Simulated scan of single mutants.
Amino acid sequence: MVDPWRAIGVVHTSRRDLERTPVQAGANRAEEGTLEIHEPYVEGLAGLAGFDYAWLLTWLDRPDTPGPPSLTQVPYLLRRTGRRLGIFATRGPRRPNPIGLSLVRILDVTGATIRFAGVDLLDGTPVVDLKPYVARFDRPPGEPACGWFDEVAVPDGVTPADLAGPAAGRPGSV
């Protein structure tokens, strides 16, 4: 049997309310936060300062509604239309395993603290893992199709609260 995951750290941001937290790190590139790595894992930061970006994997521990998530949801970005999609066609927080994925810009690595830009997480979010972004491996060639995301505008800093519409108030995803 595999050991359960362990939080390697915690994110600190100014965000306290899910409805007022930007929907993606890439839509909020300027806002800064910090990641505090727990003591047993600090040695693992050696060499990270040489990277501009990293993938931050988190456990989205504060769902907007109790209970198991629906496998179809109205994404935050489609709230005005009420269009439902399968959870695996979205990037929303209400998932069978609520793992968050944020591409953040590394500003500084000092001791156990990483200062980053690209906040889309609530203060106190547990961190599952951190992996360097490597363009050669992570950026696909050409212009990949992005499904329904290709049909919507995503303004900088947009939050779920900004996207009110017919489906507002319902659990959603990005």
Rank of each mutant, 00 (worst) to 15 (best):
V2H: 10
P4V: 08
W5R: 14
W5G: 15
R6W: 00
R6P: 01
A7L: 03
G9F: 04
V11G: 10
T13V: 14
R15L: 08
R15S: 01
D17K: 06
D17T: 14
L18F: 13
L18P: 04
E19M: 15
T21W: 02
T21Q: 11
T21E: 02
V23Q: 03
Q24C: 12
R29I: 01
A30Y: 08
E31G: 11
E31H: 11
E31V: 12
E31I: 04
E32H: 13
L35I: 11
L35E: 04
E36K: 07
H38W: 09
P40F: 14
P40A: 13
V42A: 07
V42Y: 10
L45S: 03
L45V: 12
G47T: 10
L48W: 02
G50N: 11
F51S: 06
A54I: 00
A54P: 05
W55K: 08
L56Q: 05
L56D: 06
L57M: 11
L57Y: 14
T58C: 06
L60V: 07
D61G: 12
R62A: 15
T65F: 04
T65H: 09
P66M: 08
P68L: 06
P69Y: 00
P69G: 03
S70F: 02
L71F: 14
L71T: 11
T72Q: 14
P75F: 02
P75Y: 00
Y76C: 09
L77V: 10
L77K: 01
L78A: 14
R84K: 15
T90R: 04
R91A: 11
R91H: 13
G92N: 00
G92K: 05
P93M: 06
P93I: 00
N97S: 13
I99N: 03
S102P: 15
L103I: 04
V104Q: 11
V104W: 08
R105Y: 04
R105K: 02
D108P: 10
D108R: 12
D108I: 06
G111P: 13
G111R: 09
T113D: 05
T113L: 05
I114E: 05
I114L: 14
A117I: 03
G118V: 07
V119A: 03
D120G: 13
D120T: 14
L122P: 12
L122I: 15
D123S: 03
D123A: 02
G124P: 15
P126V: 01
P132D: 12
Y133Q: 02
A135T: 14
A135D: 09
F137I: 06
R139A: 15
R139E: 15
P140H: 09
P140N: 12
P140S: 10
P140D: 12
P141Q: 04
G142N: 05
E143C: 10
P144K: 03
A145T: 06
A145F: 00
C146R: 03
C146A: 10
C146N: 05
G147R: 08
G147F: 14
G147Y: 08
F149T: 13
F149Q: 13
D150G: 00
E151F: 05
E151Y: 00
V152L: 06
A153I: 02
D156F: 12
P160I: 02
A161F: 12
A161R: 08
A164N: 00
G165H: 07
P166Y: 04
A168Y: 12
G169L: 11
G172V: 13
G172W: 02
S173I: 03
V174L: 09
V174Y: 01
V174I: 01
